[in-house]
Amino acid sequence: MTISDADRARRAPAGDADAAIAFEEREAHEAGFAAFFEAHIAPILGNVEDARLEARKTFNFRLFLAVLAAIPVATAGILFGPRLISPDYFDVSLGAALFAAVGAGIWVNRPRTTFLIGFKQDVLRPIAAFFELSFDAKGRNLCSSFGDTGILHDHNERKFEDGFWGEYRGVELAFEEVKLVKVTRTNKGTRRKTVFDGVAVMLRMNKRFKGHTIVKEDLGTAFNWIRDKTNALETVKLEDPRFEDRFEVYASDQIEARYLLTPAFMERMLAVADAFDKARLRACFRDDRLYLLIPYGKNLFEAASLHKTVLETDSLRKVLRQIQELRGIVDALKLNERLGL
């Protein structure tokens, strides 16, 4: 993918800030990025830095106003509230105060979020293009295609951002950052529990499968037994003890599950899990696709901050590494090879 003319036009001449920085290539996956950086990213960083400074100024001003307004309001509320507000209206008043506080928080934070989204569209999109991928900072709700895979955690709230998609070594791939939350309402209040925080990955394989095979994290003997009994798919016992220690496999077709999960492929899956800090990843083979859910525990693809200059390359280097790690799943699992998974 190349950068469009419209994008180039938007990235007009550098602003006031000094954008004369260079990228130093240190790792194999960064090969060629120095020239790319000089041609496509360095020229716009000045404008981005100007936008950051402007956003920070607005943010600080709004924060000052919010604090200025909050102090007398809170003081008055504490001192005169109990006398002026009837106990019948106490809940309503408290709700209104919370609503106002949340609204103020969003208003104060707006310059920050606007800057970060703009940064991602202006800087991460070309970085994605360097890896021949497309990018959307808002994400594309990749998990919506995970519906019948059986690996999505039970949730009723989903947040997603930073969607990448394209092709690598002839393998179609897509990945994005996802957070799944289970919200339970009881008479004591609302409880929110994050059940998954990481990356969703979808890879199109060179084969079509007639069955349904899923790999889930090992829960220990007792919980595995309960899951076995409540699962519509059959449990598949594999030969690799290391793999069996960390994962449980369920499938509608025992032979196909073993055709997919050869001893070599099991090793490769362990290597992928190790590459992501021994992640308790989940995988599903369905139709011609491999779906993966990889818990990450860190905020991904965040190369900018309102309070830190963008005229440096370390944050970009981190993003490059994260994209390469995810793209590297294709290499690790050898999905580009036509025969012998």
Partner: peptide
């Protein structure tokens, strides 16, 4: 490859 998988099962 399929025979190998069937044999493992």
């Amino acid at each position: 490859a399929h025979i190998a998988a069937a044999r493992r099962f």
